[in-house]
Design a binder for these strands. Structure first.
Lengths: 343, 343
DNA sequence: CTGTTAGCGCGTTCAG
DNA sequence: CTGAACGCGCTAACAG
């Protein structure tokens, strides 16, 4: 087994509690013995047992993170922000991915409870209420990530999906587009819905009639595939521009365009959401709405920590930032009328 | 605080140890009382404290994962495999990303020791030896991931970088390429080196002289940027094909090609490594060497678990799978026969 | 300034 | 089949 405070107490000719105190730099311990004990601890390569400590302090300094998938270009970066902020504050992170599976979600939540995490950050679009049963008294402090709940008391950090989407679509309208499609997903109920509403709002503001055939949703294991499959429907609906749920969807759509000889942005403008790392490296480089993923992750931790320290429950909802690259431009402006002989 | 076995013992009119046993389905407890206790536990929504349990059992059922970055399309999927296998076996995963920062690595390793993880999976290309100091007796069981160590006793699961790279480059040679470049990275010392050696080996086997200007390495925050920046050097060296360290690098290179009007694969063939999710959706779809990321992650866990159960130390090194899509083809077949209309 | 005593919540002998 | 007692490694009163 690993060395304990007793081992070092014995060699230091003091009691275990003295060692404990010395290691916490308790001023009540003589500076000389304190130094001696520190030296001894280092020499014996002592590593305090967080689990024993947690048992008595009733805090684990662990924050749980509930996420649909880790291998997601958006989530990954958020998690890094979370981890960083947690580390800076002496906490560690326990990640659990639900894979959009309710059973798995239950399992993960249960292990987090068993591990006695101090608090949880929830990024799973599915029913966040599952973490704490309304009536129970054993509620875990939590902050929602990108997941507005109608209950305005629960803390949240998020990008305003609706208004950010509205902004993206408005940028398309400003370019002169009127036949704008929305390519959505099915596995992110809430945010998909919000972005769709933002899309509709933008059309409404511009007094453009909404055409049902222009909103496309599919089902596919990967978001890219879903964007890829959307192209034909887009063409049938006569879209000149597409606002995609996120960059992964947009990347799939771009791939389909390349395969079908549809030129972007000449024949079709495409705009995504998130601004993942690869968005700058698609061809053409993708216009999108940036979410400051790393920073948002950090912010979620800070908010949770403040809450744990008895602070107020806060909410932080911000607007995404429009990033215009080369996948969007005015419709039909191709030098001399492109393919579209539509007339 | 949360309910403990004592709370439920009181209500069940039995002793705490009976509750403990009943909950573990110890056959020594009467089937009737056992059922009663289970019911009571559920009713009181009792969740056993893993930390108290760990303190006495000396196992945490936690496996640490040391990784350079979580937001990495390759790592992310491996981690999901790890998490899945861990979950299936009643273990949880503690992820620590080092961000290629030695200080951070020390910090992460230290918290893993403090948390008393049962074992560790190391995926950080930097000095794996840092986890266990050679002389010490407090070694943590570990398995290396994609990280051959010269010490053949330490367990490892990996794709054979050298031979897989050799295979990729050989495929280029088979197509008729002779001016083949390698686009490498600097932040993954070991695997980069292995793939470079595989590249050289393939050339040697084909009796093609190695030209130093054809091996390109750069430094950039993102791998994509690095690939992007490599194009001009590639052109100067007169390369007709490029083997990239990984798909991210290849994606950056493809972006540069698109921007510069270099047609892939007509003017330049590009092949990557990993087969990340987006590799199928680049334009053109990327040829690459597939690593079965999810499965390898699972395998690493199984190997670690067997080791923890006193099993033998094993090694698993496999070959990547060549996936030829549309970013590679024979060189110069374009010179003045663009589409190559049959005949 | 330091030692003693009590637990934290659970598993595990050892007795009945 | 069940209970009492002990201890895991550490912190926190409470004494000196």
């Amino acid at each position: 087994m690993s060395v304990s405070i007793h081992d070092i107490a014995r060699r230091a000719q003091v009691s275990a509690s003295t060692v404990s105190r010395a290691l916490q730099n308790n001023p009540r311990i003589g500076v000389r013995t304190r130094a001696r004990i520190h030296a001894l601890a280092a020499e014996m390569s002592y590593v305090p047992s967080d689990i024993a400590r947690s048992l008595v302090t009733h805090r684990t300094r662990t924050i749980g993170v509930l996420v649909p998938a880790i291998a997601d270009p958006f989530m990954g970066r958020v998690i890094e922000g979370i981890e960083q902020a947690a580390l800076e504050n002496g906490h560690t992170v326990l990640i659990g991915s639900t894979q959009n599976d309710p059973d798995r979600e239950r399992l993960v939540i249960n292990t987090m409870r068993a591990r006695r995490v101090d608090g949880v950050i929830v990024m799973t679009s599915h029913m966040p209420s599952r973490v704490n049963t309304p009536g129970a008294d054993d509620a875990i402090p939590l902050v929602l990530f990108n997941e507005q709940s109608r209950d305005t008391r629960t803390p949240v950090v998020a990008v305003d999906d609706l208004r950010s989407a509205e902004m993206a679509v408005a940028s398309l309208i400003d370019l002169g587009h009127r036949d704008i499609a929305y390519v959505g997903v099915t596995d992110r109920a809430r945010s998909n819905q919000s972005r769709l509403r933002g899309y509709r709002q933008a059309l409404k503001t511009a007094r453009i009639a909404a055409r049902p055939t222009l909103v496309i949703r599919g089902r596919a294991p990967h978001h890219e595939q879903l964007g890829f499959d959307a192209l034909s429907a887009l063409q049938q609906a006569g879209a000149t521009a597409a606002f995609c749920y996120n960059d992964s969807v947009a990347i799939g759509l771009l791939a389909a365009c390349a395969a079908q000889g549809v030129r972007v942005p000449r024949d079709l403008s495409v705009i995504g959401f998130d601004d993942i790392d690869t968005a700058r490296f698609t061809s053409p480089p993708l216009s999108t709405v940036r979410q400051p993923r790393f920073e948002l992750g950090r912010r979620a931790v800070h908010m949770l920590l403040r809450q744990l320290n008895g602070g107020e429950r806060e909410r932080y909802v911000t607007l995404g930032q429009l990033i215009i690259r080369e996948s969007t431009r005015a419709p039909g402006t191709s030098a001399r009328a492109p393919r579209r002989v539509s007339q």
